[in-house]
Design a protein around this nucleic acid. Sequence first.
DNA 1: CGCTGCCTTGACACGCCTCAACGAGCGTGG
DNA 2: CCACGCTCGTTGAGGCGTGTCAAGGCAGCG
Lengths: 251, 251
Amino acid sequence: LKGGAVIEMDVKQQGNALIRKLQSAMRLADEDVARLTELCREAAFVEGGRDLIGEGDATGNVHLVLEGLACRYKILPDGKRSIVALLVPGDFCDLNIAILGRMDHSIATMERSLIVRIPRHVIDNLIEEHPRLTRALWWCSLVDEATLREWLVNLGRRPAARRMAHFFCELYKRLEAVGRLEGDTYHLPLSQGQLADVVGMSGVHTNRTLQELRRKGLVSFERNTVSIPGFVRLARFAEFDPGYLHLGEAS
Amino acid sequence: LKGGAVIEMDVKQQGNALIRKLQSAMRLADEDVARLTELCREAAFVEGGRDLIGEGDATGNVHLVLEGLACRYKILPDGKRSIVALLVPGDFCDLNIAILGRMDHSIATMERSLIVRIPRHVIDNLIEEHPRLTRALWWCSLVDEATLREWLVNLGRRPAARRMAHFFCELYKRLEAVGRLEGDTYHLPLSQGQLADVVGMSGVHTNRTLQELRRKGLVSFERNTVSIPGFVRLARFAEFDPGYLHLGEAS
DNA sequence: CGCTGCCTTGACACGCCTCAACGAGCGTGG
DNA sequence: CCACGCTCGTTGAGGCGTGTCAAGGCAGCG
């Protein structure tokens, strides 16, 4: 009774996440919006903590997050884990696989998420027939790339507190762009250990850094909720410049 | 007398770098090869240490390295610099700008380099009319993205010596793919300070790490030349797995 | 009720950074 | 031709930022 209707609602709201992100940066023709909506029709829920696709896989499906949270990650020989991207609603998981043919990393859900599975041939057809949409998808992967560059700078050249603050700022802006902010707060279903793998520090030091940021009144992260009392202040502390996200500008 | 002929030779050899890279991963139709060769016709030398394009620029030209070396970099407010990518022959500098519209980082040459400048409208036209080539260019930017992910893991989870060794391995494989290796040696026009900005360490520690790697007989870097007496041994030490470069496989 | 994650705290070690000084190579100008 | 100044590589000393190890508390859950 309830399940079906809720899913329908979410899907509807969802077509939004991707389209909304794209529209914040470019104008989309009505028929393109329709085509994107059509793409998102077959969505399904996936439990948290499941692998959507693993390193080495070569199956042809492309995944898109409509609701929830997922991450890209790699595991090192010594068992250390590195989370190299967070995927929020509107983000493609693996456009890679449609073009590169094989995954060089894995993707897992962090919580129960609504995921679209797009057959590879649909993407192939899209590239063949719809240059405007191809461009839009390419835009998505270039924004991902820009985000990676910023993470690299973050990891290489910023001290722990600033690095973590920068991460919270980025997520704030990305969630804002797809309407997933709740006031000055957002939902982030990560343990401290997982957060550690995102910002490249040990679990212990992640804990201490979080305390430091809370003590300074910049940001708090408790019970899977991030609270940012003053975004501008946090952004200044983090030296955060949202330009690399390419949101809210004309193409 | 000599200059012109040399340039001609290089350009010819050059069309190679991009095409060779692509062909290592996919089959190209003859007409696509011809089109790519045509793209590379107007190449020019640029001195070392020059910015090809700066952060915030929105001019429409896309650059391609045919010969030489360039890098992507960002400067932080406190003056620290982070080099987020090295561009070897066959690499595009800023496909970004054709799709995203604005640069979120800068690009500079590291030595005298042969650079192709492709007007934006040529790229636009290509996306509109030639899906196979569009796919090839997209492939390039996805490989760049995969490389960034690996750099992120490198920076976040590997100790200094292994990190640097991993970097030398990557460059070895990339240069091999475009035929720029000289035996077990390759040319790398970087100062230790610039190398430090690549691997995210201080100049002093870069120096000490280089000494350690040399002492162990794994790799040496002197007078702009990297020598790798045994690649397999170095790769094992670095935990290097070239899969993420997506060279030498079928698409 | 006892398990099992997860968060938290303390103590300690070490990797890496910073500051500082010196030497080698090299182009420049006297 | 040599003196100078520059950049770059090298080395030493000292400090601090983070990692590691270990133990205890708390909540959720079977």
